[in-house]
Amino acid sequence: MQIVKTLDGWSSPVIDSVTHTVFTEAGTIQFRPDGCWDFAIMKTAHGTMVLRTGLTTSAVTHHYAAGDEILSIGFKASSYMTLMPGETMRDQGVLLERVGRDRFWLGSDVLEIPTFETVDAFVAKLLRCSIVEDNRLVASVVSGHPMAMSERTMQRHFLKTTGLTYKTFSQIERAQQAMALIAQGRPAADVAFALGYADQPHMIRSIKAIMGQTPGQIAARQTVGNLQSG
C-alpha cells in the first residue's frame, strides 16, 4: 500500500509534478518514462539519499521496504542543468554527495535537502542561482507550438537539453497517450489508428518496450491497486 501526496497547479516554467510517496509495506514499483527528469529524495532505514535522474526510455523497477519514502520533483523536458563530467541526462541516475544531515552537493553548490513542504523554496533557489534553466526553444516544441527554426537546430537543441532525440521523445509521448486512451475504455485498434501506429500489435509492442508491460497488464495492475485501496 502507498500513501501519496501531490502538489498541483505549478506555475513554474520548469516543474511538471511533485509527489511524496510513503510505502506501508514491502514490494516493487515500476517507474515508467514520463518525459521528465527528477530530483528524488529517498528515505530508508539506512538513511537519506539524494538522486538526480535523467529522462528514461524504458521502465525502471524499484524495490522498497515498509516505511520507505520517496519525494520526487519532476522537471519538464525543456528544463536543464549543467552536467558534471561523465554525467548524462538519459537513462541514468547520479547519487549526490551528502553534507551533514540535511544538505548535499550539487556541482559547486551546497543546497538544503528539500521536503514536501519546502519544494517551492528549493526550486526557486535553483532558478535564482541559474542552476536550472528553461530552454524556450525546446519548450515550444514540446508544447506543440514550435518557434521558427531549422530541423537541424531543433534536433541539436532537443538532444543537448533532454539527452533524447526528438523521435525517441515523441515515441514516449505517443505511448503515454495510447495508455491514457485505452484506460478511458477506447478500443485498442481505434487507439492504434488514431495515433498513427502501423497496427494494434505494433502499438502493443511499442508500449511494452517503453513502459515495461502491455496496456492490458498495466490496466490489470491499476485495477488491483484500486480494489486494494478502496
Rank of each mutant, 00 (worst) to 15 (best):
M1A: 14
Q2D: 14
Q2C: 14
V4T: 13
T6Y: 12
T6H: 04
L7E: 05
D8A: 09
G9D: 05
G9C: 09
G9P: 11
V14F: 02
S17D: 01
V18I: 02
T19C: 08
H20G: 08
T21R: 06
T21Q: 12
G27N: 09
Q30L: 15
P33V: 09
D34N: 15
D38H: 06
F39T: 01
H46S: 14
G47M: 11
G47V: 04
T48F: 06
V50D: 09
T56F: 00
T56W: 06
S58W: 04
D68S: 11
E69K: 04
I70A: 09
I73G: 08
G74P: 08
K76Y: 03
Y80G: 03
Y80V: 13
P85N: 09
V94Q: 05
V94S: 03
L96W: 06
E97T: 15
W105L: 11
S108D: 07
E112W: 12
E112M: 11
P114Q: 01
P114F: 07
P114H: 10
V119G: 02
L127Y: 04
E133N: 10
R136E: 13
L137Y: 07
V138R: 01
V142W: 00
S143D: 14
A148Y: 04
A148K: 12
T153A: 07
K160D: 15
G163Y: 05
G163C: 05
S170C: 06
Q176H: 15
Q177R: 05
Q177T: 11
A180R: 15
A183M: 00
P187D: 07
D190I: 06
V191W: 07
A192E: 01
F193K: 14
A194F: 02
M203V: 02
R205N: 10
I207Q: 02
I210V: 10
M211F: 02
G212I: 04
Q213R: 14
T214R: 01
Q217H: 12
R221A: 15
R221K: 15
V224T: 11
